[in-house]
């Protein structure tokens, strides 16, 4: 009997070890009252430790716009920062700035889901691509109408295809950034793009002044969100991996908007958050339906009922620019 109990414990331990670990990071662009060159509170990368606890990693003043973490190797991290693209290969213990003075105001960073050696950064002055984990970079702007690129997103089911969100609309490449072609509606300034890995062809885009665009046919057609959301400026969009018809959007003075029908209809979250400006949204891949929200000024909250109730999760007083969640290898 005792033998079986030991076997059971060993099995339980093995099962727990094999479970992918949920790792949550937040990018803090700035604190309230931030001034360049002043004695500011830490900004940059924070890792969630549970409850309302976060651990600050790396540079104290990194002004971080975006995060990329490799699910296969969570120690491999990229940050999109005002100074450039920072890389850690040891889980945030040490960092290297991989870009030089030519690449500044890095607004987004993404690792290629098919080859994590390939990394793209979106900057205020264009797109850059690295094939060697940021050891070298080449400009990848051919075909773009505006060099102000705020967001970039890979097609998570089709290699070499990426979408870029610029001040002058949505662009697509099918050759890993060698050339870009305009897609989608005219006269939109794109703020965020999300591709659903779990449901083929599902994309959502957040735009300035005009709400959201949703595509269910892989970007061949785009449907604008209807109703009041169409007047919102949307900075962050998300699709629930466990139920892809569930989507969320948030932006300037908007609070959180949710859709349960693949973006056909949208409703504002019932319970208001302490801050109405939302800049980061992510569905938790480990807890079905859990939505994480990063606010500007009031920190991070999550809801397990699409905004009927919110739970405070820390970092009050900061401007959360991005939340990045992975189901990482343990």
């Amino acid at each position: 009997m005792r033998y079986w109990f030991v076997v059971f414990l060993l099995g339980l331990n093995f099962a727990l070890q094999a479970q992918p670990k949920i790792i949550i990071h937040a990018a803090v662009l700035q604190n309230q009252n931030y001034v360049v060159g002043a004695a500011n509170a830490p900004t940059g990368l924070f890792r969630y430790e549970g409850d309302t606890l976060w651990t600050h990693l790396g540079w104290r003043n990194a002004r971080t716009f975006g995060i990329a973490v490799n699910p296969a190797n969570p120690d491999y991290i990229f940050l999109a920062c005002g100074n450039g693209a920072l890389r850690s290969l040891d889980g945030g213990a040490s960092w290297r700035i991989t870009t030089d003075w030519r690449m500044t105001e890095v607004l987004d960073v993404v690792m290629d889901p098919f080859d994590s050696n390939q990394v793209f950064i979106a900057t205020a002055y264009g797109i850059w691509r690295s094939l060697d984990r940021g050891n070298s970079w080449i400009a990848a702007n051919q075909g773009l109408k505006s060099n102000f690129v705020q967001t970039i997103e890979p097609d998570r089911r089709r290699a070499k295809r990426w979408l870029a969100g610029t001040e002058d609309g949505l662009f697509q490449t099918i050759d890993s950034g060698t050339s870009w072609q305009k897609i989608g509606p005219e006269q939109i300034a794109v703020r965020d793009i999300h591709c659903c890995a779990e449901k083929p062809g599902y994309w959502i885009v957040g735009i300035e002044d005009k709400g959201v665009l949703v595509s269910s046919d892989d970007g061949n057609t785009w449907r604008a969100g209807i109703g009041d959301i169409a007047k919102q400026t949307i900075y962050a969009v998300a699709i629930d991996p466990s139920y892809p018809n569930r989507m969320a959007a948030g932006g300037y003075q908007s609070g959180v908007w949710v859709s349960r029908d693949g973006g056909r209809s949208w409703a504002a979250s019932k319970q208001k958050l302490p801050a109405l400006d939302i800049h980061a949204l992510a569905f938790d891949p480990g807890i079905s339906g859990r939505l994480w929200v990063g606010t500007l000024g009031a920190g991070i909250y999550y809801s397990d009922d699409l905004g009927l109730n919110w739970t405070y999760a820390g970092l009050n007083g900061t401007d959360i620019w991005d939340i990045h969640i992975i189901k990482g290898a343990r």
């Binding site: 716009f65 300034a189 300035e208």
Partner: peptide, 15 residues
């Protein structure tokens, strides 16, 4: 500046 258009005036006024 690269931050969000609608947030910028508020941010600048802080300093």
């Amino acid at each position: 500046f690269p931050e969000e258009v609608k947030l910028m005036t508020r941010g600048v006024v802080k300093s």
